[in-house]
């Protein structure tokens, strides 16, 4: 694919739930092979943007292009083929608790009959090692894992089929700072190794600087800033800087009932 065409292109993406407008014309380009971090407060529309790109939510209006192709114009099979190249790490892991870890990790490969169950065990051990987990973890149930281990298994599941786009939904939420840094390091390593395009949503600024090449901030359903992730905290944009520094005073006012 040409370097001029963004891997993912959003134009005028809008979505409302009843009277509540969540996305109000989101425009965003995500460069191929780069890591984009989408920042924003709770309820700002980050997760809905991600779910629209993944096809889990149908937007009310707007354009979503992946590799220059409008996903809305794709047939079901074409859309499934696009999804085959996508991996996703969910905020709470979303591991299947009825399956052991190794089946979770190789779920996509098994579902698509790309691998036998015997080979899947070996493959799972290999991928678990890439996220710093022992092969013996493969035989455990997700309920037996700590939060950090669940994130790592979720990451292993996201990368097992070697996708070229990976989404990370709040990858460090609920983890202690050290485990958060470990997960961020694993994300950077995995994305680099696969040469994938990564899209992460987070409100953890340390995590955003560690995993992002580019960053964008969504506020009230619109992208209000985009730039290099390294400049976060000193962007000159009052909204972004207040958010990055976690300041109470500024243009972003929390709606608190007194």
């Amino acid at each position: 694919m040409s370097g001029d065409i963004p891997k993912i292109r959003l134009r005028g993406l809008s979505k409302s739930f009843g009277p509540k407008v969540v996305l109000d014309g989101v425009d965003l380009d995500i460069r191929a092979g780069h890591s984009m971090v989408i920042l924003g407060g709770s309820g700002s529309g980050k997760s809905v943007t991600l779910k629209c790109i993944l096809g889990l939510i149908t937007p009310d209006a707007g354009l979503i292009e992946i590799d220059g192709r409008d996903v809305a114009a794709m047939t079901r099979r074409e859309r499934e083929a696009v999804n085959d190249r996508i991996g996703m790490l969910f905020q709470n892991g979303a591991l299947f608790d009825s399956l052991p870890v190794w089946e979770n990790v190789c779920f996509k490969l098994l579902a698509q009959r790309r691998i036998t169950r015997r080979a899947a065990r070996d493959k799972a051990a290999e991928v678990l090692a890439q996220v710093g987990l022992a092969a013996s973890v493969g035989d455990l149930s997700p309920a037996e894992l700590s939060g950090g281990m669940q994130k790592r298994v979720g990451l292993a599941r996201a990368i097992a089929a070697e996708p070229d786009i990976i989404f990370f939904d709040e990858p460090t939420t609920g983890l202690d700072p050290i485990m958060g840094a470990v997960i961020d390091g694993l994300i950077v390593d995995c994305v680099k190794r696969l040469g994938a395009t990564a899209v992460s949503i987070t409100h953890d600024m340390a995590s955003a600087r560690r995993i992002g090449d580019d960053a964008a901030m969504i506020h009230k359903g619109r992208i209000v800033w985009r730039g290099a992730a390294a400049t976060l905290g000193d962007t000159g944009n009052a909204l972004v800087d207040q958010f990055a520094r976690g300041e109470r005073e500024g243009p972003i006012q929390m709606e608190l009932r007194k």
Binding site: L54, N83, D84, I86, N92, F107, K108, A111
Partner: peptide, 19 residues
């Protein structure tokens, strides 16, 4: 079982895993 899968994003995870 299916309700718990819904509220813990496991059903969305199935879709993202091409299932």
């Amino acid at each position: 079982e299916i309700g718990t899968m819904r509220v813990t994003d496991q059903i969305d995870a199935l879709t993202t895993l091409s299932t």
